[in-house]
């Protein structure tokens, strides 16, 4: 079982100039193939937001249908040629429909497909592809910019086959994959050290504990208020996370696992853990702080400490009416 999370927000300069968000993401789960794709439409291409959407949908469908063929093919050039001929055909059809040139649909393309224990990665242009292995975030494919930061390779570039990156392999200890556009790179990829921000590991792990809808909602909010403030460009991210450990809910965790999740000492008292558990159970229905305090028999100022800690860990959320609600799956 795999979970996917996607998020794309319009850049500040695009909001100002009335240009749509040119970053697009797509996820598909067909034929037991999980695919996430992300494309960043070229700034100067008039319809690049359409182009980005088209190529993400196409590549997800193509890899779902042809995963075994592509994985078995030893010659990477043949795979690249076949993938790109499909991409180009798709873009040509769309260009005819929109009565524009194909270059008006230019975008980057990042994709990860997983089937059973196998994976395929493809990357055109900038943006970063990372993965989580042995509890460490690693880089699978770095951004392909030219010499200058505002140049890159696009799906419609002449030399796309020369620079397109293709990787395949066995999952082994890999637990998840992450795709990001260059706008997100600014905040979440250390270019000098070629390292992804540690917070991404937390987000990937949270995707197992919390429903995809909720985590996407929080991610959208974080990207709008934090990530997109560091750049004028669109920002997007797509995550695919393995849920094979089968998190059955907070109440099924051992004492030690609960301590770990709550980031408290493993020798913490059972009473303390029970208090957290009680709050999480009680907040499965939206409640005010006063009600929480009453429920766990503490004064509100002491109950607030527990509630704040759970908020910081993103296990509960504060809702619009100064109430709180549990996010983490309980049972």
């Amino acid at each position: 079982m795999w979970n996917s999370i996607q998020c794309a927000v319009q850049g500040r300069s695009h909001v100002k100039d009335g240009i749509p968000c040119q970053d697009k993401t797509f996820y598909s789960n067909v034929n037991d193939v999980q695919v996430i794709a992300l494309a960043d439409g070229a700034g100067s291409a008039q319809f690049s937001h359409y182009g980005a959407e088209t190529v993400t949908k196409f590549i997800c469908s193509e890899l779902s249908e042809q995963f075994d063929f592509y994985f078995a093919e030893e010659d990477g050039v043949i795979v690249k040629q076949q993938v790109m001929s499909g991409v180009i055909k798709c873009l040509q059809e769309q260009a005819a429909e929109l009565k524009c040139e194909m270059k008006d649909l230019a975008s980057t393309l990042l994709v990860v497909a997983v089937k059973e224990e196998k994976f395929i990665i493809a990357h055109i242009g900038d943006g970063v592809i990372g993965y989580l292995k042995d509890d460490e975030l690693k880089i699978a494919s770095q951004p392909e910019n030219g010499e200058f930061v505002n140049t890159t390779i696009f799906t419609t570039s002449k030399d796309v086959l020369m620079t397109m990156k293709l990787i395949k392999g066995s999952l082994g200890q890999i637990r998840g994959f992450i795709l990001m556009s260059d706008g997100t790179e600014v905040s979440l990829y250390n270019k000098k050290e070629k390292r992804l921000a540690d917070v991404l590991k937390k987000i990937m792990k949270m995707s197992i504990l919390i429903s995809s809808d909720k985590i996407e909602e929080q991610l959208q909010q974080s990207f709008t208020l934090v990530v997109s403030q560091a750049t004028t460009d669109d920002c997007s991210i797509a995550i695919l996370m393995d849920d094979r450990d089968e998190f059955k809910g907070f109440m099924k965790l051992s004492h030690c696992e609960k301590c770990n999740l709550l980031k408290i000492e493993s020798n913490s008292s059972k009473k303390r853990i029970k208090r957290y558990s009680d709050i999480l159970l009680f907040l499965q229905k939206r409640q005010s702080l006063v009600n929480v305090a009453r429920y766990i028999h503490l004064k509100p100022k002491y109950a607030k400490r527990y509630v704040q800690k759970l908020c910081e860990l993103n296990l509960i959320e504060k809702t619009n009416h100064s109430c709180y609600q549990t996010l983490v799956k309980m049972n």
Binding site: V149, N150, E185, V186, S187, L188, Y189, N190, K191, K192, R195, A197, D198, V199, K202, I203, M206, I215, Q218, L219, Q221, S222, L225, V226, V227, A230, Q308, C311, E312, N314, E317, K318, N320
Partner: peptide, 19 residues
Amino acid sequence: MDNNMLLRIEDLVNNPTPR
């Protein structure tokens, strides 16, 4: 609502501005 942020400013990396 800030409490619901999955990531905060201090979580971001500090890349130098392109010149």
